[in-house]
Design a protein around this nucleic acid. Sequence first.
DNA 1: TGGTGAATGTTATACAGTAACGTGTGTTAC
DNA 2: GTAACACACGTTACTGTATAACATTCACCA
Lengths: 150, 150
Amino acid sequence: MQANDCAAALAAAEGLCEARGTRLTELRRRVLEIVCASARPIGAYAILDVLRDDGRPGAPPTVYRALDFLLEQGLVHRLASLNAFIGCSHPAEHHGGQFLICERCGCVGELDSHEVEDGIVRAAAAVGFAARTQMVEILGRCAACRDAPA
Amino acid sequence: MQANDCAAALAAAEGLCEARGTRLTELRRRVLEIVCASARPIGAYAILDVLRDDGRPGAPPTVYRALDFLLEQGLVHRLASLNAFIGCSHPAEHHGGQFLICERCGCVGELDSHEVEDGIVRAAAAVGFAARTQMVEILGRCAACRDAPA
DNA sequence: TGGTGAATGTTATACAGTAACGTGTGTTAC
DNA sequence: GTAACACACGTTACTGTATAACATTCACCA
Ligand SMILES: [Zn+2]
Ligand SMILES: [Zn+2]
Ligand SMILES: [Zn+2]
Ligand SMILES: [Zn+2]
């Protein structure tokens, strides 16, 4: 995520939490900032390292609790295949999300195609399965890396 | 996976490895058997417990190496959201796979819809991303649990 | 018969996540 | 005011997941 996107994400988070009556505390705000400032998905312990560099006290529950709040609010996503977190690029609407993970540069883009989501719900329903939420992580080459050599 | 499915999976694995010139050793075969014999996804350390019950020596790398081989051969799948493994229900053709995970009974079904897969590839291509492989895990209720109370 | 590479054994460690309990702080009820 | 309460955060300890690094064994072939 770019620096200006990061500032925009923080501003959006402020507004959303204000509107929802939830508390974006200093710690939660800082964790969101760390996640959004990272160009690539970042792990919980890497976030913790940054917090400690800040001079804060900190242990794993510190960061996991903040991340739980941010996940609930839809401000960050967790990538199950990487055990890492990224900022949501459009948090106003809660969504499962589909993620494009570049195997060359490590960047992650968010897709959020309703066609894909609905197609999955329908395909599941066709075999009697009632889909509630879905996790879609796509590995490949991003536009910038697409034509690079192996 | 049912017992007869398990036997069939082992037989299919023998044939595939034979045809490919890869070695389905005693250990790898036993790990595949353990995974296929489990009605639900099974974790690496649970597999390790079974191996030890067999009287084998064993440490985490033992089972992770066997699983790496089975994953490469497309004989098992890893469910990233559960950190667990299941036998592939039709290993002849390599595939990313789409998984239907029941939140009530814990069973997992394999979907493998080409429509879904192709839809994802197209949606990714539309934003310049070249998809190589995809991970789709769908949470909800299986047909048997669909109408059960919460 | 000795060399080569693959598979496995073994030890140690890194990384991910949670349980349980204590502490401070602000808000509400009386 | 102050007692009661809910919530966020600090702290310790632990469980679970996965890998690095090196030693050993074994199958196969020159
Ligand atoms: Zn998002
Ligand atoms: Zn890239
Ligand atoms: Zn499969
Ligand atoms: Zn079920």
